[in-house]
Design a protein around this nucleic acid. Sequence first.
DNA 1: TCCTGGCACTCCATGGTCCTCAGTGCTAAT
DNA 2: ATTAGCACTGAGGACCATGGAGTGCCAGGA
Lengths: 337, 337
Amino acid sequence: MLDERKLAVLRAVVEDFVNTNEPVGSKALADRHRLGVSPATIRNDMVALEEDGYITQPHTSAGRVPTDKGYRLFVDRLSSVKPLSSAERRAIESFLTGAVDLDEIVARTVRLLSQLTRQVAIVQYPSLTRSSVQHVELIPLGTQRVMMVVITNTGRVEQRVIDGLGEINETAVNDLRGMLNRAISGLYLGEVPGAVEDLPSQVPPEHRHMALSVLSVLLESLVERHEEKIVLAGTANLAAVDFAASLRDVLEALEENMVLIRLLGEAKDPSMLTVRIGAENFHEGLRSTSVVSADYGVGNQSLAKIGVVGPTRMDYPGTMGAVRAVARYIGQILAGQ
Amino acid sequence: MLDERKLAVLRAVVEDFVNTNEPVGSKALADRHRLGVSPATIRNDMVALEEDGYITQPHTSAGRVPTDKGYRLFVDRLSSVKPLSSAERRAIESFLTGAVDLDEIVARTVRLLSQLTRQVAIVQYPSLTRSSVQHVELIPLGTQRVMMVVITNTGRVEQRVIDGLGEINETAVNDLRGMLNRAISGLYLGEVPGAVEDLPSQVPPEHRHMALSVLSVLLESLVERHEEKIVLAGTANLAAVDFAASLRDVLEALEENMVLIRLLGEAKDPSMLTVRIGAENFHEGLRSTSVVSADYGVGNQSLAKIGVVGPTRMDYPGTMGAVRAVARYIGQILAGQ
DNA sequence: TCCTGGCACTCCATGGTCCTCAGTGCTAAT
DNA sequence: ATTAGCACTGAGGACCATGGAGTGCCAGGA
């Protein structure tokens, strides 16, 4: 049904349309690409491609435009990830070296990715649930409150002030800190609830109230409410695009953290590039955008995701190359820390 | 030169233009506002206002549009800050209560402000330089590294990993922590450098290297590199506006943290509402936007600023009311913490 | 059987013309 | 000083003609 030449035509249509943003006709194709056949033949192929739903006409007597299905086929079978130029690779290195802490790594990464792709970049902080506890610190603040600081092996630091403990006994705090660290340091956050279950019973009754308060905040902040921090950059790049849906809808969607999390979260294949095209995205406002995302992590442990949001009419090979490269570099940097 | 009636005409022009986004003519003015004179008289006044540069015509035979100078006069003399409706006030309360930490307060505030004004909201974290040290914590991480956590009275927490200390001696860390807290807790960050000057000499020589490393990181992260954290929300509201400058330029400017900081920083009058209109903004891309900003703080100590960015054609009284109200509420919440 | 040149057809985009209408400036009268 | 009246202006919308890119189809050729 879809012989080699038809696929070549589809590829040419996608490439030309991405370049020019104008419906592409049979003549233009025959001129620009060495397909070795006449426009008439191309027209016949186009009819077949249109019948199968890979391309469409905005109106009679106009050229063809790829559909979501067409882009999908292009991404799956007709293109390969484009490796970065050496200039781009140097840009990555100079951009990411010299970051002093996780916040800065993430901030720089997201800017880098948006500049490389000229689109909107999204970077997720290393997931809490896939991190392990490195240290728990309890810091008395005055005589009534305690600040809890949890440091993970991925560099994330979560802090929370705990209130309503009554008068604080410093040695009790020290004891609790010691017990907590012995119980949970080194564990994955998902294992924490089980590990602290019988901790209260080991605390002398007069301090059990404090221990319970601290534990409940710990569990709440780390496990139940495992908020995923997300940063994005490059929204200005959207202004250049003219969306089928209104720009406002896209911007609104991008401001919803939950939407972004799901957007990245729906990757099918762990540790691989994922591309979601147009209506494949669950969100109304993102029907005319595509999302390219990838896992990053240390070794083969995936920590979180990064991604790029742009118009369905995007340079998939280039974008995929940039996302993959940045994901690898960020993994290296985290490993080196 | 500018008698009462001319001012009334200017006010009416501004109000109508803000509402309709269309040049306003003498007849429409006479109809909608009870100026008590005929369109012809209004026309004469308009000529005078135009000669003085308060309004302008997009082209002959069109209505008038306020200039930056016109908006300026309107803000300074012809309008008053509009108090919030009770519904809005309730919205603020329900929005801001229940925030557990500073991050959440700031995140909620910026969303709230953007929703109230339907524009882009900017919120600055409480400035480090105007905060005081509540506690410094040193946490050994493994045997080679120490994490330093600085907690300020405004709820900001800065953390940094310190490397290259060689083998760590736990009691030495404890001693240093004690000395540090005795030396600087309670001080404003600006006073920290002076207060730690002669600290190294009090440390036993074998641990002096560690002390120096810790101090240098402390000074660098808090004082020299006093980065101002800024958050913004509501960029989607820009999509509804048609800017003279391109939307892209505006979005780009808003992604530059340094620009935002200057934008808020240029307030003339502390603890008051500041309005910068159009070309009064230093930044090219923001020539067709206005910025309404205000200080917030606890008591009469100003901690940082919040603001709103929108088209010069904005509802100044309403926006100013919202900014002022939110600034006050955030001050109360911080005071209550 | 597949490809190609030729041809009639279809619409969009472009640009010109005309007309309407909101709004102006000016003048003369109150 | 204010107003009614009036001629004038220019943007924007409706209308129409035209050019051209692109199509579908068919008949002839490899």
